[in-house]
Every structure is written in C-alpha cells, then in structure tokens.
Amino acid sequence: MDLLSFARGPALQFAIGVFCFGVTWRLAILLFTPQARDLTPARKGALPSPIAGGREVFRRMWPEIHPTGSNMFTTINGYVFHLGLAVIVFGFAPHIQLIKSIFGTAWPSLPNFVIHIAGGVTIASLIAALVKRLTSPVLRLISTLDDYISWAVTIAPLITGYMLVGRLIQPYNTALAVHILSFVVLLIWLPFGKLMHAFIVFISRARTGAYLNHRGAQL
C-alpha cells in the first residue's frame, strides 16, 4: 500500500473514528454530568434562560473592540483566520468533494485564486497569532502546551495544502498524502485539545448567558 492509499483509506478511517469517539465522549460528559442547581430566584427583569442563552450566543459573535483598542488585534485576527479557514474548507473544490463523499451533499466551489488568497491570508494570520502569543507576557504566561499543539495542527494542513496546490512537493501523490495525513492529525487532536471549542463554543456561551442573566448581570 502506497502512502496516498494509506492516507485516503485506513488513516482517514481511523482519524474519523477517533474524532467521532472523542467529540461524542466529551459532549456526553458535558451534557450528562449533573450540575448543582441554582436555587436563588432570578433577578427582576431576567429573561427566560433559553432566550438569554441564545441571545448571548449571537451577541458574542459581533466584534466588540475595547475603547482602548487593547483587544483590536486578537479580535480582528481571530475573525480573519476563522473566516479564512471557512472559505478554504467549504469553498475549495477538492474539499467539497471529500465532504460530498462523506455526507452526500455538495455545492459550487470558489475559483482557485480566491482559495489561494484565503490560504495565504489565513497562514499569515495564524503566524501573527503565534507571534502575539509569544511576545505578549500575559498570553505567554497563560499558554499551555495545548495552545501550541492546537496551533500547529491547525496550520499544518494549511501549509501542506498550500505546498500541494503550489506544487512545492513533488510528486503530487506524496504531497496529497502528506496533506491528508496532516488533516488526519488535526482530526485526532481536535476532540482532546482546545480545538474542541468548535463544538462547545455555543454551549458554553449559552450557558454563561443564561447564568449571568439569572444573576442580573448587564450584558
């Protein structure tokens, strides 16, 4: 079995197995572990919890720059690489083909030059995020190995993908295999590190929103 066949076959299958197990395992623990009930009465004017939670999910999607501009970089840069990743994952024809082979649904792809631009911008944005993390004393202090691994496994498929499209690795088969394997590593790591926020971000925001609303905090 050559490297590409291994990457497209058993490696991808194994990674999806680990990914599904990890995500459902963590979600089940989160959702099924009984929480201490808040016995305090809700503050006057508090919204019903589901509405407050839903509102908080959407409210936090809107960028909010601090008056001093101290969070300007992290806010804008965060949007840049998240949107860039979305464009690449959901707009590039080969990625749509992979999604189609798994979920059976597809949509029109974007022209390659759009993907190339998005790829370059996203890589630059992720590098900028790392530089910020390393140069900011506070960020560096609170960073753990998880942060650096999560960064590495996120940027790796971007770099290998860029090298694949730009023919920087030859032959193409090897480049494609390396790209798929870098995605395999991302899939395996995702449920067990901070990248799991892709699944729990809305749950945690809703929960926080409902809790703060109950306590009468101004949001």
Binding site: Q13, V18, F21, V23, I29, P34, L98, S101
Partner: peptide, 28 residues
C-alpha cells in the same frame, strides 16, 4: 473524485460515536 474517501466511514463513525456517548454518559 480524487479526494473521496476510499474506505467505509459510516459504520466506523456510528460505532465510535455510540461508544463515545456510552462512555461519556457512563462516566457522568
């Protein structure tokens, strides 16, 4: 198409997801 998976994923995904839910719920 070239990027398509070449091995069965549905069964693996279903089985591992079920195992994840069972283990997570059990732990909870």
């Amino acid at each position: 198409s070239l990027p398509s998976r070449t091995s069965s994923i549905g069964t693996v995904a279903g089985a591992t997801a079920a195992a994840g839910v069972a283990l997570g719920a059990g732990a909870a």
